[in-house]
């Protein structure tokens, strides 16, 4: 007799309850009682006539619900500067300690996000992430959002620690890869109020001067990319 049985018995005796168990289900009549051994086949039989719900994953990938909590994404402002300011509020909010951030100063030669501060290191450990979305709620600049991508498996632990370049949103139309200066005459507040709508000539000129090979420059964009926007 195991220890837990003892406890059970002792508790029973203490409660003064009966030893026997009495079900709350209604008692069946004699006919159903006789059919009981094959009643399970009824379930199968019933489902022959219902539509199938099996998903043909991975051959067919069904879209998720629009607010599905998938892989994170670090968004950009319309001119290509990063929205992340490296404030670490996402890391602070994270109940699973899955996010690691290190910030640094923006300099005139290396302006990654609007304002003084940008996230130099940004890592999300998908072995730890529980996809609760508290980081998204904490983000003060809407830099961090979640995509619907759910295919997050891999053969190595290292591979499941996503770095900043893995998380950054793709370059959209009119966007110029950071670093480059802010739109002249704007502040970080202007970016926050969505007054910046795209890269301006000064920024394009700056990137042309400093990184003529940059693929996001208008002349370096392929027709395919330009069409995709």
């Amino acid at each position: 007799m195991s220890g837990s049985d003892d406890v059970w018995k002792v508790n029973r005796e203490r409660d003064g309850e009966r030893e026997t168990f009495e079900s709350n289900f209604p008692k069946r009549g004699p006919f159903l009682e006789a059919l009981a051994p094959v009643a399970g086949f009824g379930v199968s039989l019933r489902n022959f006539f219902r539509p199938t719900v099996t998903e043909q994953y991975p051959k067919v990938k069904n879209p998720t619900m629009p607010r599905y909590h998938g892989r994170h994404q670090l968004n950009r402002h319309p001119d290509g500067l990063e929205k992340c300011i490296g404030c670490e509020l996402c890391a602070w909010a994270c109940p699973a300690d899955a996010i690691y951030v290190e910030a640094d100063s923006n300099t005139p030669d290396h302006q990654v996000s609007p304002g003084e501060r940008y996230g130099r290191v940004y890592q999300i450990n998908y072995l730890r992430c529980i996809f609760c979305g508290l980081c998204i709620e904490a983000c003060p600049t809407r830099a961090l959002t979640m995509t619907n991508e759910y295919e997050l498996a891999g053969p190595t632990r290292e591979g499941l620690i996503y770095e900043k370049q893995d998380l950054l949103a793709p370059m959209g139309k009119n966007m110029l890869a950071a670093p480059h200066p802010m739109v002249p005459g704007t502040t970080d507040g202007s970016y926050y109020r969505q007054e910046v709508t795209g890269a301006v000539d000064e920024q394009v000129e700056w990137v042309r001067e400093h990184r003529p090979e940059d693929p996001t420059l208008p002349e370096n964009r392929t027709a395919e990319e330009a069409a995709r926007g």
């Binding site: 670490e88 890391a91 290190e102 640094d104």
Partner: peptide, 9 residues
């Protein structure tokens, strides 16, 4: 120490 870390780190 500018922008280096947060106290909870």
């Amino acid at each position: 120490y500018r922008f280096r870390s947060r106290p909870f780190d």
